[in-house]
Design a protein around this nucleic acid. Structure first.
Lengths: 336, 336
DNA sequence: TTGTATGCGTTATCAT
DNA sequence: ATGATAACGCATACAA
């Protein structure tokens, strides 16, 4: 391994001079600096992030938290899109990414301890059980954090506009003549609560009454449970004309169940999803859904976290609302 | 931040003693060690991975390489499954995971340099363009590596059994009476070559001749290109009875195209996919495909890499073949 | 403009 | 059984 010491010897200067030259300090003679940089390149010098981190107390490494207990694992397209964009933006800004978890090997630690252990400059909390005290500890610690889809206290967060998304879907469906709607929702997180509230509020605003039994629970990303909820809905005395699914993947479970009953989409039943993952647009029929700006969310999360890390003094927590977009698809039939 | 110095003061012993006690050195009096450990816990001590890494030359951090140029980005379910299992196994063994890329912020570096910069103990190469000299440099460096789905020289790799997988699919289809097969394949990687060879070989063994035009190129994970290839196949003078798709997602593109021609699956056309991602099993009709053991592959990759890191002296490179499994699904009609 | 000295938190070597 | 000391590679305050 070639270190600044090697360069200093090769150049006949002190290590301090080399360090300064390499970091562009203003008090080094231009030609000395030039000579040093050339030697560094010639010798194949690479800075040692570990040593630097130890010295300056900054690792240029940010933690990413994905606790997949809430079904928000990496392998769900929505979250993997977020991960990918967090990664891209962080790297663009000179930061690496490390996963933060509970329990590393023999050591049992919580998220905060893990982040400290790795000297993370900050943590993006992409998917977590926000009831978990371990999350609260991390968020309320001195480590900068940005949460996605949940605002802790009034700290920095990136939010998908669930209220507007749901409203857009309801209105779209309404405009297509639908008056009897059913809504299958995921586990009771704050996201879910917002969607349910927006669903009800928009229905009310449009003069639609939602009969009992038309709002049913299921589990995010679990087609099976949405299939069961679909069956229950089909057994209702007054069958709805359009079913809202918790997410795009869950729609597939509903689709199977509808098929089993000989109900065609959208001929006999209209459906909408949520998320707008790429998959939803290659399915047949193309799904009517609301695209959450996953890439934008990941990008903003990384950007804001790093801004907070680099300017802690002037930092003001903020909640960013990411723009979404209705994808019309073809699973909603116009029955007007 | 509480350091071993704090503990040493609190206990009235030297820092060296604290370090030894915490690391379970044999030459510390049991009760001293006990007292030190208690104090450490009481003070909320956390080891500093950075300082330790600097001292011992081991970071307990492994790099993961996902260059998504070949369509192997994190957001493809096959790769995200691998990532998840690499992560889980690494963490179980006490290692963290950091993404390795080209170009970190202003610094332009290649994969090898990035891994060195972060002091990675090893790197899992999960998806990469193996023609890229930067990959070659990393693999032939002193840094331990494990590659997935590609063997570099005769170094350690985890391979999905493409030969057996393709053979299993062809035989399954054959047993269902199909004699006229078409195969749409992905970009010309070594994986693709193996699949094509196995397809041809198995066909030959079964006495099936594959007419010209029945083996067509497309792009992995790109439904559109598979749709185009499907169209071309449908225009052949002698239409096949079963189409093989490059992967499960690409099947969706084919499905759309078939639908457009009024061709029902599996009534009028049988199809098979490849990968066996969870998605394939929640689609209707349920896809006939070959499941690659993604979790197993990730787990093995992490395990072997860490074994190599921890026992460099006794290490022998090896190629592990991951077991797959045929998922019968319902997209192949028995026309026997 | 350059160099000296020191320390970041840890572990390893060698005395005691 | 315990402690003094040095070193990992780097950056910085201060002296020259």
């Amino acid at each position: 391994m070639v270190t600044i010491t090697d360069i200093s010897k090769a150049c006949g200067v002190s290590r301090a001079t080399v360090s300064k030259a390499l970091n562009g300090a203003p008090d080094i003679a231009p030609k000395t600096a030039e000579r040093i940089r050339e030697q560094a390149k010639a010798l194949g010098y690479l800075p040692n992030a570990t040593a630097r981190a130890l010295k300056v107390g900054r690792s240029y490494n940010i933690g990413v938290l994905f606790s997949d207990t809430t079904g928000g694992g990496i392998s769900h397209e929505y979250f993997s899109q977020i991960l990918e964009s967090v990664k891209a933006e962080a790297e663009r800004l000179g930061y690496d990414i490390t996963f933060i978890s509970k329990d590393l090997g023999a050591m049992s630690m919580d998220y905060y301890e893990h982040a400290k252990y790795r000297n993370c400059d900050g943590v993006v909390i992409a998917s977590a059980d926000f009831q978990d005290p371990a999350i609260a500890r991390l968020v309320t610690s001195e480590i900068p954090t940005v949460t996605l889809d949940y605002t802790f206290d009034s700290r920095t967060s990136i939010l998908s506009d669930n209220v507007r998304g749901m409203e857009a879907l309801v209105r779209f469906v309404y405009e297509n003549g639908h008056r009897k709607l059913a809504f299958i929702h995921g586990e009771m997180t704050s996201v879910t609560q917002k969607r349910i509230a927006s669903f009800k509020k928009t229905c009310a605003a449009l003069g639609i009454t939602v009969p009992p039994g038309c709002i049913r629970p299921a589990v995010y990303h679990d087609p099976r449970s949405s299939g069961l909820a679909t069956r229950a809905i089909l057994e209702l005395p007054e069958r709805p004309t359009c079913i809202f699914y918790p997410d795009d993947l869950s729609f597939l479970g509903g689709m199977s169940e509808l098929e089993r009953h000989g109900i065609a989409v959208p001929k006999d039943m209209s459906v909408v999803g949520y998320d707008g993952i790429p998959l939803s647009q290659v399915l047949r029929p193309k799904l009517t859904t609301y695209r959450q700006g996953a890439e934008q969310m990941g990008r903003e999360a990384a950007r804001l976290l790093i801004e907070q890390i680099e300017h802690p003094d002037t930092w003001l927590p903020q909640q960013v609302m990411a723009e979404g977009e209705l994808l019309p698809g073809s699973t909603v039939r116009n029955i007007g």
